[in-house]
Simulated scan of single mutants.
Amino acid sequence: MARRFIIFLIIISNGCLCADTMTVIRGGEQHLSSSNDFRKNPERSFEPEFDLDVVTNVTSLAGQTAYLTCRIKNLGNRTVSWVRHRDIHILTTGTYTYTSDQRFQALHRPLATGSGGKSWSEWTLCIKWVQERDSGIYECQLSTAPVTSHAFRLSVVVPMARILSGPDLYVDAGSTLNLTCVIELSPEPLEYIFWYYNQKVLNYDSPNSRKFVYTERENEVTTSRLLIKSTDQEDSGEYSCRPSNSKKASVRVHVLNGERLEAMQTGGAAVPVLSLLLIVLSSSSNGFS
């Protein structure tokens, strides 16, 4: 059955009320409503609206690609722009990029049409090789009047590696050297962790090796331990831990060849400290006059 719209105009003579009403006949049923409702209600007027269920707090690892996805219903002929909040810089409009930084790109994906003929679409801001300075607020803006926007927060995580007991470590010859490398702020498991000795990759896989590596992960912290048994002076030197997603961390190891000496760092060199034994004879405590 075809839809019919019958409009009645009601005017109060004293001018205090002037309203138009609309009778909509669908399938034999009558519905009375104000035409203003059609302009105000986005469900009826098919005004664009954001999907508020999408993730707006996005965390990305430095060096990887970050994706901010804005999902919109009933976009129609409006355009979508991505704006960086800190400098109000328009990065993209539609699928066109308006910045000289080629790491930014807009991706568009139409979605299936829902009930009532309402269509959905996704507009994603893609940031390649994301850097710490890219952290901040980004806005997905629609060319409505006035402009409407939906804010997204990007947090770029830069993993940090450090070796405990650095930058210099002193051990006795014949003891076990234990170096612990801690990699923090790593939301994803590491692809690898390499240990270096004097800029060369350590080989700890051979059957007769005195070197062993143990790696474990808990939450966003990864720990790698390098153990060297029965150390000697040839084991002295620089040791580095280099994870796949961060800069290396280094420590310099000093193996003391059987010397029972304390060492301290002075300008990066090990200086022995001699302990002097002072014997004080007290006449009062020993009975001397």
Rank of each mutant, 00 (worst) to 15 (best):
F152R: 01
G63Q: 14
E220S: 09
H108E: 12
R210M: 08
P207T: 13
S236H: 01
R252I: 03
L281A: 14
N57P: 10
V58L: 13
G94N: 09
R86C: 15
V55N: 12
R217L: 05
S250E: 05
E188D: 10
E238Q: 14
P207H: 10
G27Q: 06
I88C: 09
I10S: 13
E234D: 08
F288L: 01
E29T: 04
F50K: 05
S60V: 12
S246Q: 13
R39H: 12
D172M: 05
A106R: 00
S282H: 10
I12Q: 13
E216N: 14
R260S: 08
L190I: 03
W82L: 07
D51L: 10
N203W: 06
V158A: 09
T99C: 10
G166R: 06
S250W: 04
H108K: 11
N14F: 07
T97V: 12
A19D: 12
F38Y: 05
F152M: 01
A249S: 11
L142C: 10
F212E: 12
L91V: 14
V147S: 15
S240H: 01
R84P: 12
D101Q: 13
V147Q: 14
D87G: 05
C140I: 03
A66K: 09
H89D: 13
T92R: 13
I11Y: 02
P48H: 11
A106K: 00
L277W: 04
G287I: 02
S175D: 06
S284T: 15
P167Q: 06
I163G: 06
F46P: 01
N14L: 07
K118S: 15
I137K: 00
Q233F: 00
